[in-house]
Design a protein around this nucleic acid. Sequence first.
DNA 1: ACCTGAACACCGTTCAAGT
DNA 2: ACCTGAACACCGTTCAAGT
Lengths: 189, 189
Amino acid sequence: MPTPERTTLAEIVRAGRDLLESGGPEGLTMQAVALRVGVRAPSLYKRVRNREALVALVAEATLSELSARIDAAAGGDDDEPRAALRRMARAARDFARARPAGFRLLFAPGADLPFDTASLQAASAPIVRVAVRLAGEEYALHAARTFTAWLNGFVSMELAGAFRLGGDVEAAFEFGLDRLASALGEPSA
Amino acid sequence: MPTPERTTLAEIVRAGRDLLESGGPEGLTMQAVALRVGVRAPSLYKRVRNREALVALVAEATLSELSARIDAAAGGDDDEPRAALRRMARAARDFARARPAGFRLLFAPGADLPFDTASLQAASAPIVRVAVRLAGEEYALHAARTFTAWLNGFVSMELAGAFRLGGDVEAAFEFGLDRLASALGEPSA
DNA sequence: ACCTGAACACCGTTCAAGT
DNA sequence: ACCTGAACACCGTTCAAGT
């Protein structure tokens, strides 16, 4: 005798994301997720292999949202590359502030969350595209990695509260953005 | 009737660091730590408030070791600043590879591990010192933050396995190092 | 075919009782 | 003064039994 489905995978992932933001990683329990979607914990295992797999799905959903925001900020290909870089950096930083726990999950996995290579590629694509225009084909990947590393590092440290020596953090962000944009565009020394 | 101490805080923290590296964050359990130092789990609470406090101590010990390595790599004040920057970056990257789980703990805390501001200051000091020589007093802090953000971001992404678009990751590291050193030394645009 | 209560292993933490 | 077993609350996960 079939029983009607009382929830969906999408609903479960959404509940996971909400719980992650409101209660951190340790707030993301199977019981809390189950409660939110109106089911008992054992039922979750019909849709998801285990908690780790659910966390991976949450990470992937977060990455794809970040990816979409960066993409939207990238602008057209006729745009000034430095302006595009600035918009993408702001978009990523704003996203990290809106979803700090989700952002942390992305590049700071407990063990190593293997997100899909395709998702990672989609997220990098707009950055690589701007890097091509800025640094040229040959150095585009290096330039994109340098920019992404700086951006991810800056935002992570900001979220972790690691900037505590005084000074204007906002100005430091602008400084880094300016200098990187210049540096990436120059011919190699 | 006093009982002789069967372990010490230092021993407990060491056990915590070892377990973190061998089994990740979830391998760092109170029971495993207790077993290693030859005591039962409840006894740990004589030296440590709870697991979270122990993790904070592990993070702080890791930060201070990283700090020492960067300091050792900084070299004398008569040295070429770009060479010093390169040595410090290598030292940090080597450290992250030797203690990946510990490194992850530093800037990717579950909630927000509040490490001691003094430790943070000690860790930044050699970088700020080189930044002064490279960028001048006025922009030293901005420059140090830009460099640290890039370094931390690059190493974190490397550890997380986020560089998967092909290309030479080693060369990307050198590229970033070169371009940053140049960019930070230039007068502001 | 999905859902559930019951059960199990495991973990963090407290506490009264030992020495 | 430190250490311990026992106990409690909580979590992830499995599974037989319900519909």
